[in-house]
């Protein structure tokens, strides 16, 4: 593991007009590291994810990424073509709402194959074989390959999103509440899948969640956000077992024990 960070954010600030989205966020993420961003609705965690993934432009601050050539680049300085290439090869994004991350009218195989075709794959048989392989890895039955995701359950859609993202072997994946709105048993299966894929492929992940159990299961480090600011961060088990800030203590104390 190299010591140079993969992702580096400095002083990230976002205003929506006069309203603060998030302020002065610094973070580093290394290869293979999972960072959870927790906080309640409106705390700025989704804004921060948007800034890190270049979906939003910061009002101040910057995000840098170590490209595959090893050079740390300011993402704002990338051309649109470079940015798109990055988004669909070295990065992934798993949305809470599968319809935001999938083409709902395109078959599961086509959804997975799209990234390959986008980077120039032009052999149907090879694309299909790769897509089938990835559907297997996310536990989608081979006979569903030509069905479109409108016929899939919520859990399957999320697994399809993951396959679609991982087919180009990204190094960094952003996840926005990937288990939100799913049944508990479906959540458990998805979390286990994410956990094993992260370990197998050494993925770096930034995951936004309001579920502390998800953060504990998946993440190495955690950032707690409140009113647009990071109020506490550190080792996940340390922050959750020994929370320091009043708000973090409240969050931890509010979790229902099963």
């Amino acid at each position: 593991m190299t010591d140079a960070p993969l992702l580096l954010a400095e002083g990230l600030t976002k205003y929506y007009g006069a309203r603060l989205g998030c302020a002065d966020v610094d973070l580093t993420l290394h290869a293979g590291e999972v960072l959870a961003i927790v906080g309640e609705s409106g705390s700025g965690k989704s804004t921060l994810l948007g800034l890190l993934s270049t979906a939003l432009d910061p009002s101040a601050g910057r995000v840098s990424y170590r490209m595959r050539d090893g050079i740390l680049r300011d993402l704002a300085a990338l051309s649109e073509a470079e940015r798109r290439l990055l988004l669909r090869t070295d990065w992934g994004f798993v949305h809470q709402n599968a319809a935001d991350g999938l083409r709902m009218a395109v078959s599961a195989g086509g959804n997975v194959g799209e990234r390959l075709m986008a980077v120039g794959a032009r052999n149907y048989g090879a694309i299909r074989a790769e897509a089938a392989d990835w559907l297997g890895r996310v536990e989608i039955a081979a006979d569903r390959m030509d069905d479109d995701p409108r016929t899939f359950s919520g859990g399957m859609r999320q697994r399809l999103q993951i396959a679609r993202n991982l087919v180009t072997r990204p190094r960094l994946v952003f996840m926005d509440e990937p288990t939100g709105g799913l049944d508990v048993s479906v959540q458990a299966r998805l979390l286990d899948l994410i956990r094993s894929l992260v370990a197998t492929y050494g993925l770096a992940v930034v995951i936004v969640t309001h579920d502390l159990a998800v953060a504990r299961l998946l993440s190495h480090r955690i950032m707690v956000m409140k009113a647009g600011r990071v109020i506490e961060h550190g080792l996940t088990d340390q922050v959750l077992d020994d929370p320091r800030e009043p708000y973090t203590q409240l969050l931890v104390a509010s979790v229902l024990a099963a």
């Binding site: 083409r103 395109v106 195989g109 086509g110 194959g113 799209e114 990234r115 075709m117 986008a118 980077v119 120039g120 032009r122 149907y124 694309i127 299909r128």
Partner: peptide, 8 residues
């Protein structure tokens, strides 16, 4: 690439 998705 998307056009090839259609052909796929």
């Amino acid at each position: 690439g998307l056009m090839h998705v259609k052909l796929y």
